[in-house]
Amino acid sequence: MCVAFPMRVTAVTGDRGRVALGDVEQEVSLELLDNVAVGDYVIVHAGFALQTLDRGEAAETLAMLGALTRPEEEPAP
């Protein structure tokens, strides 16, 4: 029930920011979050950033998926 996407913060001015998904840019409100910095990724829905993406968790999820693709005997690098 909620189309939302991780977007890279490219500018912050007060509680407003500009974010990008690839080459598409959008103005969003950052008022639902605290201390968002340029370079962060935020989950954007209907013109608002709802959460800051946790890069560590994203990497961990991808690592687990990567592990699934390798046959058991060879441990993940």
Binding site: V3, F5, L21, G22, D23, V24, Q26, V44
Partner: peptide, 11 residues
């Protein structure tokens, strides 16, 4: 790619 990105954002 930018067409795909825009369409993703707009659903």
């Amino acid at each position: 790619p930018p067409v795909e990105q825009a369409c993703e954002l707009l659903g």
